[in-house]
Nucleic acid binder design. Structure first.
Length: 406
DNA sequence: AAGACTATCAACCGCGACCTA
DNA sequence: ATAGGTCGCGGTTGATAGTCT
């Protein structure tokens, strides 16, 4: 069937919105909710098409939008999610509170993609340009798993979208009541007023692990607070950022989800490791000579039996069997001196960020070798390997890996 | 100072999915 | 089953600001 025009284009205004138009749209939605976007412009007295109104509201006027540069944490989340989901900006935005898909898309295209390219990583596949590393390391299996994971998460996201839609329908009668009473706790940028998603955001299990990285001091890892009572394959459980925890589940006995959270008294971080923009940029530029961060290199990747890291001072090998429990994590965590896991993980992920940061082409600003990554080809290869390994690590440790798919 | 170039991001376009009759 | 209508998503464009030469 053919696509019908969203509106009569004759006489409709296009281009940048004026403050007056914004005011009209805002006032109308505050009073009536948006209802049908198609009908809204006429009712609100706007010479715009409904689509334009929806976009303006969704990407700019909505009160629950956070503006300004992205924090380091947000950057990390975007990269991780993009590795899993690809250009599914709306899905990615679901996990970035108060950010719109459009904003994330723009940020990816103008910043993050370039950084990955400079790292020698294909921003589309997130694979090193020379991905023989993977096969050489016997990690093609992991790559396949990741691919499956992405597919699986995609299916889940779609199912979630349906649920949200259904929820929306059920609550439609709710819509036109008081605007002021609307909850703006939704984290979905695609969930404006007509999507009363209340409560913490639904979150990928992967992101639980990932978010956790930023929310809890290493030494606060505990074996308590296991909150994955819900099925690991269910996304109906909410991730509570205020309830960081470490979770283990029936490892090898069916479910092998292991979520652990370290973290973050990052230098320059404020609450929960969230940094302001300048600080974020500083981190991008400065890791490698971080005085507070301690290098923790994901050294050996994942193999059959263990996962190994190298801290600045010592090696740490975590068993990949059912002995990798909360307790073991905690005790192993204690092996790592109280450095900042956030930074080290960031280093791990982005340690080849020489081009964009403070490391000059010739490496003159690289005053140390460990985290700078601005070195030779072999170092870059190692960094790329680490980058991808970090993703594998997250996926493998937090995936609902025990679904039949895996 | 001025023109060229680059980066950023708001906004638009077109497609596909979904819903309803 | 099908057609029409609506909405949301992802790709792209274009205006503007900033930087470089």
């Amino acid at each position: 069937m053919g696509r019908s025009p969203c509106c009569d284009k004759v006489g409709l205004k296009k281009g940048p919105w004026t403050p007056e138009e914004d005011q009209k749209l805002l006032a109308y939605i505050e009073e009536h909710g948006h209802g049908s976007w198609r009908a809204l412009p006429a009712k609100a007295g706007l010479q715009r098409c409904g689509k334009s109104c929806r976009l303006r509201w969704t990407n700019y006027l909505r009160p629950d939008i956070k503006r300004g540069k992205f924090t380091l944490q947000e950057e990390q989340t975007i990269i991780q999610l993009h590795a899993l989901l690809g250009n599914r900006w709306s899905a990615i935005a679901t996990h970035l509170p108060k950010r719109t898909d459009n904003e994330i898309k723009n940020y990816w295209n103008t910043h993050l993609k370039k950084r990955l390219v400079k790292m020698g990583i294909d921003p589309v596949t997130h694979k090193p340009k020379n991905d023989t590393l993977l096969s050489n390391d016997g990690q093609s299996k992991n790559a396949a798993n990741l691919s499956h994971m992405a597919q699986w998460e995609s299916a889940r996201l779609e199912a979630e979208a349906r649920l949200v839609r259904q929820s929306k329908l059920r609550s439609n009668s709710f819509q036109n009541s008081s605007f002021a009473s609307q909850e703006f706790t939704t984290t979905s940028p695609s969930s404006p007023l007509n999507k009363p998603v209340v409560g913490p955001p639904r979150c990928l299990d992967v992101l639980k692990a990932w978010n956790g990285v930023w929310t809890k001091p290493m030494n606060e890892i505990t074996a308590t607070g296991l909150d994955l009572e819900e099925s690991p394959t269910s996304t109906l459980g909410y991730f509570d950022q205020n309830a960081p925890h470490i979770s283990t589940q029936g490892i090898n006995g069916g479910n092998s989800t292991v979520l652990f959270e370290f973290v973050g008294n990052s230098s320059g971080s404020s609450e929960g490791g969230i940094m302001n923009n300048e600080e974020s940029e500083e981190d991008w530029k400065g890791f490698g000579n971080s005085s507070t961060g301690q290098l923790l290199e994901y050294k050996d990747g994942i193999n059959e039996n263990s996962v190994s890291f190298t801290s600045g001072l010592q090696d740490l090998t975590m068993p990949m069997d059912n002995t990798w429990t909360a307790e073991s994590l905690r005790s192993n965590a204690e092996q790592i001196s109280p450095g900042n896991f956030v930074e080290t993980f960031t280093d791990l992920l982005l340690s080849s960020n020489s081009g964009d940061g403070g490391l000059s082409e010739n490496g003159t600003e690289s005053d140390n070798g460990e985290g700078g990554g601005g070195g030779n080809a072999s170092e870059n290869c190692e960094d790329n390997k680490n980058y991808w390994n970090s993703i594998f690590n997250l996926v493998n440790n937090s995936s609902p890996s025990d679904s039949a798919m895996f």
